[in-house]
Amino acid sequence: MKIQSGRSRAYRIVSLIILIILAFLFTFPLYWIITGAFKSSAVNNSPQPTWWPTEWVTDNFKALFKQRTAPLWEIFMPFGSFTNPEKNRVVLFAGPDAPAAFRWLINAVFMAVAAMVITCVTAAMAGYALAKKRFNGRALLFSLIVCAMALPKQVILIPLLKEMSGLRLYGSLWAVIFPTVGWPFGVFLMKQFSEGIPGEILEAARIDGSSEWNTFTTVVMPMIKPGIGALAIFTFINCWNDYFMQLVMLDANNVYTISMGIATLQAETSTDIGLLMAGAAMASVPIITIFLIFQKYFTQGIAMGAVKG
């Protein structure tokens, strides 16, 4: 017994050391982005790495902001392209000109938030129906949804693109948002959460004369709140990271997201590492901050969804 506990203590210490080394390795890329953003290009381009910046410079951010400009925001007329023969979008309001990087950030936030809100609403409703409503065709719909979950988006890329240009959505952020909402993972997750609602409560609400919609908003919603929270963060991060859809659907500087913007910068100026790191820092710091604020709900949420699944 004693020998074993000595061995298990040794094992624990060794594994702790390995964990700490791994933790350093996993944080290193982020550290390298942030310090790289504040190092001069001579320092970044030397074969001898500078582990801690000797002097902090902001040249990279200045260069990034000077790169190009775009209106800070633009609000388009819905379906405006149908109103003129050139199929141009019609701008209703445009913000003041600003460095394009800020516009990209605004675009990315708008895109991810819109996808998040629409997904949460549609998935919560559908998940509740699949879990608690005994309608005809329910099993078939659910298996269709589970099958579609494994399907990579690249498979349907071309039809989606043609559809979007048919709807005149190609090149707008909605072309990224709608397919994200259509992705059925959220429905699956919300179904798992809704399964936990006791049928008696719903029955009681019905007997009390509550309408279906009322039951959903006042009884069901509060009970699946943790699930909605997890789904919200999950969709936000997924949509933000979905470089592929952004690459295919967005066509011009003004509608780029921050990820697309940096990817374009990389293609154009792959030698200016500082500039790229400044862009990467702008893209990653906001989302990491959001994650750290909500990480408790997030980790709880994804774990709960899976355990029930």
């Binding site: 964990l19 791994l22 933790a23 996993f26 944080t27 890329p29 982020l30 390298w32 982005i33 790289g36 970044n44 991060i237 933000w240 990271n241 470089y243 990820s259 697309m260 940096i262 990817a263 990389q266 792959s270 590492i273 790229l276 790191m277 862009g279 990467a280 820092a281 893209a283 990653s284 989302i287 990491i288 994650f291 750290l292 990480q295 408790k296 980790t299």
Partner: peptide
């Protein structure tokens, strides 16, 4: 525990493009 969990989750939230750009440099 949550510190370790966050650290291993960091590359996911950093974003695919930012991660790729920094690895290209490394």
């Amino acid at each position: 525990l949550s510190a370790f969990r966050c650290i291993f989750y960091l590359p996911v939230v950093t974003g695919s493009v930012a991660v790729t750009v920094v690895w290209a440099w490394m």
